[in-house]
């Protein structure tokens, strides 16, 4: 009797999990369409570094350069440029330094992969430790 009960509970969990997975998959379909908005400007300027006050983002800074940059980005967005186009043109002008997202390139391959590699090594060590036969 108890065994049966346990089994049905397990089944219930599996059912819930399946429903949950289905819902999450459906969730993806609500992707937002990208139209230019105030928030988009903020998103871009939050990921740009100010060259005058070098620890701040363009969004945070009130320097002359930051103010101009905000206007520049607005006008670029009004011209129909995408975020990627704006970022890449600014990187051409000011160097990779200006964007806070280092992106994946030859220079940053190690930056992205090293932590992940360490994670895998850590996992391997733990598995070895637990399944070690004495």
């Amino acid at each position: 009797m108890t065994r049966m009960f346990l089994k049905s509970k397990k089944l219930l969990i599996i059912k819930i999990l399946i429903i949950f997975v289905l819902i999450t998959i459906n969730f993806k379909n609500f992707a937002i369409s990208s139209t230019y908005s105030e928030e988009q400007t903020i998103n871009i300027t939050k990921n740009l570094r100010c060259l005058i006050c070098q620890g701040q983002t363009i969004h945070e800074s009130n320097s002359d350069f930051a103010e101009s940059m905000k206007k520049y980005i607005k006008s670029e967005l009004e011209d129909g440029k995408t975020n990627e186009e704006i970022f890449s043109s600014l990187v051409k002008k000011y160097g990779q330094w200006i964007v806070y997202d280092p992106g994946i390139s030859r220079n940053t391959l190690l930056l992205w992969s090293l932590p992940l590699l360490l994670f895998l090594i850590g996992g391997a060590i733990i598995v070895k430790k637990i399944f070690r036969k004495i």
């Binding site: 939050k46 990921n47 570094r49 983002t57 160097g95 990779q96 330094w97 200006i98 964007v99 806070y100 997202d101 280092p102 220079n107 940053t108 930056l111 992205w112």
Partner: peptide
């Protein structure tokens, strides 16, 4: 080479 590593990373 100079890069910035910020919140997105």
């Amino acid at each position: 080479e100079q890069i910035s590593v910020g919140p997105p990373f």
